[in-house]
């Protein structure tokens, strides 16, 4: 069963929300949005986001994949591929 992309983005949006420091960029969140550069998320919170993503989607993210999880688009790709496998 395919999972709706917009559904994943909506879930991601609610996961990152508590860590966002730039609310203006957060309102405009899209696939190109970067967590640190655009949302001004503290790098110490990236691991919290990754753990929340693992719990929300019931997936396990490997180190190699985590390395790229710095934007909405990159996270979406990883989540989609995990859900499809």
């Amino acid at each position: 069963m395919g999972v709706d992309k917009n559904d994943i983005i909506a879930k991601l949006k609610s996961i990152v929300k508590p860590y966002v420091n730039n609310l203006e960029s957060f309102e405009q969140l899209n696939e190109g949005t970067e967590f640190i550069k655009d949302l001004d998320i503290n790098s110490a919170n990236l691991v919290d986001i990754i753990l929340d993503v693992e719990d929300e989607f019931d997936i396990r993210i490997e180190n190699k994949e985590m390395e790229k999880m710095l934007s909405v688009g990159a996270s979406l790709k990883i989540i989609e591929s995990k859900l499809a496998s």
């Binding site: 640190i36 550069k37 790098s43 691991v47 180190n63 985590m66 390395e67 790229k68 999880m69 710095l70």
Partner: peptide, 11 residues
């Protein structure tokens, strides 16, 4: 020093 794009790989 390496002018790298950001990565998240603390290990």
């Amino acid at each position: 020093a390496t002018d790298s794009a950001p990565v998240f790989n603390p290990k």
